[in-house]
Amino acid sequence: MKSITKLVLILGLSLAVSLLTSCKNPKTPTSSIPKLDPKISQAGTTGPLTGSRNQGTGPAGDRSGSYGNNNVSPQGVDSVDEVGFDESGIGQASRESFEGRPMDTEIFKDYTVHFDFDSSAVRPSDRSNITAVADYLKAHGDCYLLIDGHCDERGTEEYNQALGERRALSAREAITKDGIQAGRVRTRSWGEAKPAAIGADESSYAQNRRGEFILLLPKAE
C-alpha cells in the first residue's frame, strides 16, 4: 500500500509541477504591444499651420518660482509635450542678423534650463530662468540670443539632434512669451555631442538634457 501511495504521490507531484511550469510559461510569447495613440489619427496631415503669428506680444504670465532654481528631477518622465505646441512666430530670422556678433557664453551660465528624459517641455521651475534672460534682453535691445539645445547620450545621434533643436525651440517659445521678439533668438542643436557631465548615470544625464543661453553682443563696427 505504502509503495502505491508513494508512487501516486510522486507522479501526482511531477504532474502538478509540469502543469505549474506550463502555466508559468504560456504558449504565446508575452511581448508588450504598444497601444496606438488615438491622437495620431488626427495628426500628421500637411495642412496649413494652426495658430496665428503673434511675435513678441505682451509680457509673460508665469513669473513664479525663485531665481537659480535648477532642481533636476531624479528620474525622467516621458511626456507628450509636443501636441498643442504653439508654432506662432517660430519661423527663424535670416542667419545674417546673427552672424559676426561676439558671443558671451558666461553671462547666462546659471540660467541654463533642464529637461526631463525624452521631453522638450520647459519645466515650471525653470520659468524664472527664462524670465531673467528675457528681462536682460529687454534691457539690452541691441543684443540677440543663441539657445543651444543638448541631450543625454541615450538617444540615437540624429534623433538627439532633432530633440536638442526641439528643446532649444521650446526655450525660445518661452522667451517670446516673456515678450522677446522671436527674430532676436536663434537656436542650435548639438544632440549629445557636448555633454555637461561625462558620467553614464542618471545625475549626469539630467545635467546633460539642457538648454544653454548665449548672449550675442552687438556687431563690432
Binding site: T45, E82, F85
Partner: peptide, 28 residues
C-alpha cells in the same frame, strides 16, 4: 511634414515614391 513634434532621419523607398522617418508626434 508640418507637425509640432520633431521628425528625424528620412529615408527613401527604393521606388522613390515614399519617405520613411521617425517622429515624436505620439510622444515617443
Amino acid at each position: 511634414t508640418q507637425t509640432a513634434a520633431d521628425e528625424a532621419s528620412p529615408t527613401w523607398s527604393p521606388d522613390g515614391s515614399k519617405l520613411c522617418f521617425s517622429s515624436r508626434i505620439s510622444g515617443s
